[in-house]
Design a protein around this nucleic acid. Sequence first.
DNA 1: GTCGTGACAGTAG
DNA 2: ACTACTGCCACGA
Length: 105
Amino acid sequence: MAEPAPEFVEAVLSVVAAIPEGKAMAYGDVAAAIGSRAPRGVGQVMAYYGGEVAWWRVVRASGHPPADHEREALERFRAEGTPLLWSRDGGSFRVDLDAARHVPE
DNA sequence: GTCGTGACAGTAG
DNA sequence: ACTACTGCCACGA
C-alpha cells in the first residue's frame, strides 16, 4: 500500500493535534490549513497514522464521521462534549461544524 | 509520465 | 434524506 510522504504526514498530524477538545474539522479544512487541497490525501494519512492522533475530530464536510468508525467517534464526541446533531430517530448523528468547527491560525 | 486507489468535496437530480 | 457524477490532490507502482 502507498505510505504517504513524512512531510505531508507531519503537516497533517500537526494540524489534527492542534484541534482542541470539543472541536472538529473537515478533511477539506485540514487540507486547506496545510496549504493543500487534498482532502483525500489527508484521509490517506489518517488511514495509516490515524491511530496516533485524534482522528475522530476530523470529519466530512457534512459532519459525518469516517466510514466504519462512527461508533468509536461517538464515544469520543460524547466524552468530550462535542456538539452533535442527531437524526429525528436518533439512529444517526453528525458533528455540528457550525459550532464545533476549529479555525486554525 | 501514466494509472489505480482513497477515513473527500461540491453540485445536480 | 438518498444516489450518481465530476473534480481535486497525493502516493506507490
